[in-house]
Structures are given as C-alpha cells and as structure tokens.
C-alpha cells in the first residue's frame, strides 16, 4: 500500500522550537515553561503505577485453561435462539444447578456456533448446550467429553420446510417433492445448525436438490430460526427451513401469520440438542460430579415452580439421559456434507 499523501517534506526552517530545544546539539537552555512541562510529565509517569488498580487475573472474564477457574462451573449454549431468551433462561438454570450441585455456576454468553465449539475444545467452557452437529464437532475435538442429557423432544426432532404463500409453493406429499424449491430464493438458518441446515441439506440432497440449484446460485444463511421465519414471511426469501420447536412457538405466540407463511413438508425425525460436559469434571469438582450433573437434569420436574420455569423456557417436559451413540447418524451425515472432517 502506501499512504497516498502528497510527498511530505518540511523546510528545516519550520522545525518547531520545542524540538530544537530538546535536541542534543544546543545547550539545554530550558525555559521555565518547558522545564515545568518536563517536571509535570516526569511526575505523571512516576505516579502512573499508583493510580492503577492491581492487575488481577480475575479481571479476564474468559481465561483459557480450566485450571484458572478450578471451582467455577462455566455453562453456555449455542446462540440459536433470540439472545433475550437465552439471557433469561440461563441465569435461572445457573441458579438451579448451583443450588443442586453446591458449586458456583456462571453463564458465559457466546455469540457464534464456531466460537462455542472452540471454547469447549480449549476448556474455557465446562458444560454446553450444543446442537447435534456442533456437539459432535466438539466431541471430536475434545476426546472423552461426556454426553449428559437431551430433552424428551430431542430423541426424534424434526425440521419444517416453510414457504411464503405468495411464492406459489404448495405443500408437498413426499420428499421427492422438494425439487419444487429449485430456482427459488431459499434460506437455511446458521451454517452449523443441525435442524436449520445439516439435516435439511441432507434431505434436499436425497431429493436431488443441490445448493447451487437455488436462485442466485446459493442458499442464504439467516443465522437463526426466528430470522428464517421473519425473512420468509416478509418475502425476502420464498422458502426456508426451521426447527419444529421454534415454528410452534412462533405460531402459538401469534408472531407467525399463517396466511403469509405455511409449512410445506416435515422431515423424518433425528436426534438433536444435548448437554455436553468436559471430561475432567470429576477431577475438578469431586468424584461422581458428572453423574450428579446428569441426575440434576433428569430430575428437573414441572411440579417444582422454579424447575417448571426452566423446563418451559427449554420447551421440554423433561430431560432424559443421552449417549454418544444416538448421534452416530448425525456424524455420518456431517461427514457426507463436509461439516465434519
């Protein structure tokens, strides 16, 4: 590059007196004002350490390395819902976990799917609510990570293909019918979303629809399920795909206008969201901690008002134990599509 300023040159006569004063070639005849400035500057530098509060490692909210935060359980979640929902949900959960497990719990917000996986790999997060794909990615990057629990609805989760009514796309009878989406403006959710991208892309591929078949030569990535619904409803995209849970909640809250956006096809079920924990929690928090963590989730009950609120915000009746094997099909699809390598 270079800076395009016109050639910069200054005649020597314009060199300011201040700098000549401090040059080693004149006797240092500092006038009173210069001297006072110099004294002031020197004092300022001297006092600098005094005005600074001592540096404590605790000032860093997210220190790499688990050893830095031995006794703090850091939980997080992939940002696939509206941030305000997550910010309400997680402090509640943190309190409940803290009460039941007897350790301090802190919710660390993460703004990006990839960042959540990376933070888990580095041990910056202890317990994360992952989607199926991100969970598998995280487990492959952190061997020994423990799958803790999923919701009742995660055992057989569905994606819904939706369309704007003005687009003329009609509900389709079977998977082959997905080919009507060729040449349409189509959006996924986030790149790493299981229900908003991975499984839908897999089903589209089975129906012979490639990503380059969409209008503009590529699908959009709206980044969240809520955004997908809003964009399809507005007509910015003619069709899209969302997870069943967000669709139902938008429909029941009246945010979705059934006159403008309809479901055209429901995918077969697949395993989705789950809690994933670091392999070393037992060493850090005591023997049996991981097992207690699992039973805390599994024992959340709607009869307890506090716990009911949590279950409600998670959109679950209850949590059930989960195992890595449940996610083997997801890993296979992920490898086929190139999201897992």
């Amino acid at each position: 590059m270079a800076w395009p300023a016109l050639s910069v040159s200054w005649p020597a006569s314009e060199i300011p007196p201040f700098f000549l004063m401090s040059s080693p070639f004149r006797r240092p005849v500092l006038r009173l004002r210069e001297r006072s400035t110099a004294v002031l500057a020197g004092l300022a530098m001297l006092l600098l350490p005094a005005v600074l509060p001592p540096v404590t490692p605790a000032a860093a909210p997210l220190l790499p390395g688990a050893q830095a935060q031995q006794k703090l359980l850091r939980i997080s979640a992939i940002p696939d819902q509206k941030p305000e929902t997550l910010n309400r949900l997680y402090p509640l959960l943190a309190n409940e976990l803290s009460r039941s497990l007897g350790v301090p719990v802190k919710y660390v917000p993460v703004t990006d799917y990839t960042a959540a996986v990376s933070a888990f790999r580095r041990g910056d997060l202890d317990l994360v609510w992952f989607g199926a794909l991100t969970g598998v990615q995280a487990r492959l990057q952190k061997p020994g990570a423990r799958v803790i629990a999923q919701r009742d609805i995660d055992a057989s989760f569905q994606s819904f293909f939706i369309a704007n009514t003005a687009s003329g796309i009609k509900p389709i009878a079977n998977q082959k019918g997905l080919s009507v989406l060729k040449g349409k403006r189509f959006t996924f959710g986030s790149e790493s979303s299981t229900s908003g991208r991975l499984m839908p892309q897999y089903f589209l591929g089975q129906a012979g629809v490639r990503l380059s078949d969409f209008a503009g030569g590529a699908p959009g990535f709206s980044s969240s399920h809520d955004a997908t619904i809003a964009l399809v409803q507005s007509g910015a995209y003619q069709a899209g795909v969302v997870n069943e849970e967000v669709w139902q909640s938008n429909l029941s809250s009246g945010k979705t206008d059934p006159k403008k956006v309809i479901v055209i096809w429901r995918t077969p079920g697949y395993a989705n969201y789950h809690w994933l924990a670091q392999p070393n929690l037992d060493q850090r928090f005591g023997k049996g901690f991981t097992a207690r963590l699992q039973s805390t989730f599994v024992n959340l009950r709607a009869s307890n008002p506090q716990q009911a609120q949590i279950l409600d915000l998670f959109g679950a009746k209850r949590f059930i134990p989960a195992t890595p094997r449940l996610y083997d099909p997801i890993e296979k699809v992920g490898r086929e599509i190139g999201k897992i390598r």
């Binding site: 395009p4 300023a5 200054w10 500057a41």
Partner: peptide, 25 residues
Amino acid sequence: RFGLAAGAVGSRGRELLLATLALLP
C-alpha cells in the same frame, strides 16, 4: 490526508506531549 495545502509543522509541541502522556494512563 490528501489535498493541496500541506500544513505547517505543529508549534504546540508541549500540548502534544502532554496529550500523549495523558493517553497512557
């Protein structure tokens, strides 16, 4: 940054120095 009028050299060196020092803390 670009233009026809090249500026003169600053004559307020002391001010400049103080501003720099104030920036550090």
